[in-house]
Design a protein around this nucleic acid. Structure first.
Lengths: 210, 210, 210, 210
DNA sequence: GATGAATGAGTTTTCATTCAT
DNA sequence: CATGAATGAAAACTCATTCAT
């Protein structure tokens, strides 16, 4: 930690084999983090889970923190991608809310554990903090835009501040993902999606279309 | 020489001085945990923050984990106590919701950071896991009871399952406490309370009294 | 962050270098234990005596106790091996007793200090206690068998219970090893062997062959 | 340890109450040492077992080692006293050997554990080493004198060196005490005494009187 | 004196990182 | 590049002894 570094800084792998090894380490790191939290996230365990030797870890990652950043980057990208899938649900606004909630919940399922761990451990790392903020902002922005459209269409309570509402309702979904997937409260996922959607719809004063 | 626990387990302090020292260590532990997360939570730093020498830590706590359990216990008790203050708000159900939300938010303000840290770090400690579950259950139970009363009084949507609703809306409040106090999203606390209350009231279909 | 064993248990060394290092630590541990008792038996001193750095100790041993078990195992194996050498002394039963006693004394020479230290420190460790019992039992069993054969050949007092006699005479030899090698009573080893053999022979009523 | 000592050196207690407290500490120390080995021999546990407060320990003993010396002194004195009881057995030399062995075994019963612990732990303390040597010497001397008298009376093999014989047979008894009382080999005490005596008598060529 | 709290040096253990082969 | 051993600073814990009341 903080030694003067005589090791060559890892470079992007050039061969296919190198890429595979790097990917394996990245995947192993993420899985361990999700499955066992910080306790499982050591260079040695990651290397072992990836099926390579201990020293190889440092061929591909500068440090443990370097891997952590890579994991968070991967999780964030996945969140962006997955959450784009949702909106193609057509027509009925309530059905869209249900779909959106289902999508959000699913997206957070994979991300929640990692992001929470990082939120706590990232006291010092600005890169990480930045990533977390960007993920949050993306979600808030999307939620706010969706609400604004409903309001403009006269389908939702026009008095609600879109951004604040998106923050609050987003908080609800995120925390429920945590409750279901990490705390393992024995709840049926579909039931939760439906219930959240009902509450959400009522909260924004969703008016059934004609 | 052969292993075996030799040191007697720390006992409760007998003198006033001892009680003060133990309290100081407990308070210091909690403050460090809140302020700096796991990084600040070492016996050495705790002892230093409490103004006592290194070894004194082990006069009162069996281990680092022992202090952690004591901190969580303290936080949990505070949550219980603070959250009892709310319900004396009279009359108007909406005013009561506002008061409850303000109370919850305030209560979580102190508890949130610690509880989240512990949620992540408590993979192995059953005592801790149990405490966390109890705290959650208390909140869920109270919320569900409150809703049931409103339903029985014909003031809220009778179709909502009280427990599930309490879980979801409780999730909203808890996560908002985190957003405001830990992530430091620049939001006005009163505004958030009002907004959450409005959404909450709409969500449960609160009917204005006569 | 949350507790839980994170470090993988040390595995057997894979390379020759690793084997050498492990052997050096084991040897150093044994030597220190014999030379300085518990006081010299610290991971730090062992590592230093083995000429490796502090942390290397834990590359090969899980803990101080783990090394202790390994040392006892080594001592026990040596005892087994060395004590097998004796019996090939031919013909004359008395000559065989002398050889056996010389062999036992020599075998205990290396083992005595370590086994006694462990006997005291092994209050809690069942693995250790088991090893000690096995070593004792081996010796008692061999002694009893030897006596039984002499009795069957009509060369020793047939009224003596073989097992009890072996225990008592074995006790004599073991303690004499301690007296000579640890307490450093200034006695000539050969003289002791001869004397013990004479007493032993008389005790079991050894009859000179024809 | 090795600090500059501002504490008043403990003085011999003057009041009866003081004497009682000191005795209680001494007794507790010995009992813990016998029952739990070094693991139980801490100032705190000793004080607790003696029913006084922690700090009081240092009112009566300068240090842990100081108590240890006192315990060994007590054990040694008891050995001296108890072993004097034996010789009044009259007449028959074999009966006297039986009585002596019974007495030795009984005497070592209390002493064995403590003396062995000290033998291992007393690497540095010359006072302790000296005490141990004196105890040993007393026993060897007595045994040798007994044998010499038998030889002079024509009742034992005159070729045996008295001192060496006493050392060897004494070793047998001492180790048997350890085997029975500490290792808890399930042996009947009387049977052992008889068997040892038989072997001992045969070993020295004891001739039945007339 | 007696009490129980306080001390801090010493010991054990951990683990991210570096190095020799 | 890959491997597995080596490193050592930092963290956790112990406990004989001293001190304030």
């Amino acid at each position: 930690m903080g030694r003067s570094r005589t090791n060559p800084a890892p470079t992007a792998p050039v061969t296919a084999r190198g890429r595979r090894t790097r990917d394996a380490l990245l995947a192993a790191g993420r899985e361990l983090l999700e499955a066992r939290g910080w306790a499982g996230f050591t260079p040695e365990q990651v290397a072992q889970a990836a099926g390579v030797s201990y020293g190889t870890f440092y061929t591909y990652f500068e440090s443990k923190d370097d891997l952590l950043r890579a994991v968070v980057r991967a999780v964030a990208e996945e969140l962006f991608t997955e959450s784009l899938v949702g909106p193609d649900a057509a027509g009925d606004p309530y059905a869209r809310i249900v779909e959106a909630n289902r999508g959000y919940l699913k997206a957070w399922r994979g991300a929640s554990r990692v992001l929470r761990l990082v939120e706590q451990g990232a006291d010092t790392d600005d890169t990480l903090r930045q990533m977390l903020l960007e993920v949050r902002e993306l979600y808030v922005h999307r939620g706010a835009e969706g609400l604004r459209r409903l309001q403009e269409a006269g389908l939702a309570n026009p008095e609600l501040d879109p951004r604040l509402t998106a923050i609050v309702l987003g908080a609800m979904v995120e925390q429920m993902a945590h409750v279901i997937y990490s705390l393992r409260e024995p709840l049926d996922e579909d039931e939760v999606v439906n219930h959240m959607s009902k509450l959400w719809a009522a909260a924004i004063g969703l008016r059934p279309q004609a």
